[in-house]
Amino acid sequence: MPGSARGAGGPAATAWALPLAVLLATLAAGFAFGLWATAWWALLAIGFVCVVLLAQELESRLALRWRGPFQRGLALGFPLSLLLIWELLAGAGILNPRWFPPPSQIAVALWELTVTFDRFNRSSLIGRPWLVPQVVSEQGWAGVQELVRESHVWATLSRVLGGFLIGALPGVLIGMVMGLNRTVRMMLDATMSAIYVLPKIAIFPILMLVFPNPFGEGPKIAVVAISAFFLVAISTMAGVQGIDKVYLEAGRNFGASRWQMFRHVILPGALPIVFSGLRLALGTALIVIVAVEFVRADRGVGFLIYYYWQVLVTPRMYAALVVVMALGVGLTALLQWVERRVMPWRRN
């Protein structure tokens, strides 16, 4: 801080030195007395506090225009250093690499999963898109379909998106009707709330009985759809009921008809809460589909996780976890994009 009265010695020096000293002492004590095995949680807590203090001290010494980049650097640097520590600990054998393989191994496993074709299971991670030109010339469209069918990512994605859409659209409709009509609300609310709390994965066995092909896509998509439906319906109802009365009165005073009221006041007024319901439903859809694929599937990222757990190829299991994370991030970004499109007034 140029121009400030702060000197080089005194409190400024302690602000640096004290947390640094504590941090080093903690690490040293951890190794010297074998505390890592028992009191690792205390060592981690002390270490974390020291790192935070150091980062704050460092930031206060930066020129104002560097503080923004510094904070973004923290957001990126923290997870990267965690990965680095993981890598080092696993490499040194402190973390058992069989259960916690180093990130570098996971990256390699992810690459292998992507490029290899599992002959036994006749599947691949993303369907080997580089084969498309060759397959089209040899077998035409049917060959491409074959490639799509072998893809684990596509299997999971189609179940999540299909189930989400099939559940969310009627969810919005029923939720709107429940929000608008007291009679319908009274009839359905108690029932919906009761089913809402039931973990939908619990009805998966019933769905397998109901569908003609219990091992097909039907029950899997249905269980995702049902999970999404109740979440979306209940939050849509809350969104409609939560619209500030003054907007309804303004609509009435300016002579809006029933349809105009819905189109110009109720629908846009409820949208923010509808979308928070959709976000929740999307997250739940991903949880449900992974759980279903653990149990009953020969395709899908959930299947991969469970399969590589069973055969104890943990790097590939972690690689599949990374794919699930990427799917979640991608789908959420997609929904946010739609949200910005549909509600331009909430952009800033």
Binding site: V246, A250, G251, G255, S257, P268
Partner: peptide
């Protein structure tokens, strides 16, 4: 409390009555 619709631009708020 104003009661202008947050989801409409100034133009569409002012034109609201006429649109209805």
């Amino acid at each position: 409390e104003y009661a202008v619709f947050p989801w409409k631009t100034v133009l569409h708020n002012v034109a609201f009555g006429l649109e209805m």
